[in-house]
Design a protein around this nucleic acid. Structure first.
Length: 193
DNA sequence: CCCTGATTCGC
DNA sequence: GCGAATCAGG
């Protein structure tokens, strides 16, 4: 695949939204996250509250005629909002007034609904309680495609986080949560008390 | 181990 | 210009 204008646009948009290189790569398809990162740098739009500071520690080795050409360029005449604090995203300016946006859900990953407690098998429920005690309590931004996205607690309060345990390959949840999320109709039938 | 972005350098 | 390999950090 090549970097067409459209693809570059998507790249810019997603990167601006704080999406990681890997998800952008998946979205675009046909490229790896490395390709995305490489392109980002070439486009000059790299600095984003990077966690890892530039760490040019290598070369040495067998490098007869090698000279560090690309140094720290200065051309950055873009009026950026600058204040990139603790990796908080939301680069998109809110067009209308923001009334009460408590639970902003990131685009892309729809969140699962909390099933009624009385629809779950006692065994599975017990298992879930067990797991939730050991949940990694990930925040929204820490979720990846390999972390359990089961919500725990009330989104309207501080008591809210995501399970975050390792997902059952291909599933959005960990083993325990998959158990309560995907129940055979047969076992659901006539379960009510 | 999983992830993240950063950099280098052969193509 | 491109991106795999590699690196460094969480």
């Amino acid at each position: 695949m090549s970097w067409t204008d459209e693809r570059v646009e998507i790249l810019k948009k997603m990167w601006g939204e704080g999406q990681s290189a890997s998800v952008i790569a998946k979205e675009l398809g046909g490229v790896t996250r490395n390709a995305v990162i490489g392109k980002v740098h070439r486009l000059g739009l790299s600095n984003r509250a990077s966690s890892t500071k530039a760490a040019p520690k290598k070369e040495a080795a067998a490098k007869p005629a090698a000279k560090p050409k690309a140094a720290k360029a200065a051309p950055k005449p873009k009026a950026e909002p600058a204040s990139e604090g603790p990796a908080t995203q939301s680069a998109a300016p809110q067009p209308t007034a923001t009334p009460a946006r408590r639970a902003i859900i990131p685009a892309g990953q729809p969140l699962p609904p909390q099933p009624s407690a009385n629809e779950i098998s006692p065994e599975a429920l017990a298992s879930v309680r067990e797991v939730e005690k050991g949940a990694k309590k990930l925040s929204l931004m820490e979720l990846t495609e390999r972390t359990c996205k089961w919500p725990i607690g009330d989104p309207a309060t501080d008591e809210f986080w995501f399970c975050g345990l390792a997902t059952q390959t291909g599933k959005p949840y960990c083993e325990a949560h998959v158990g309560v999320a995907f129940q055979p109709m047969t076992s659901r039938r006539d379960r009510r008390r």
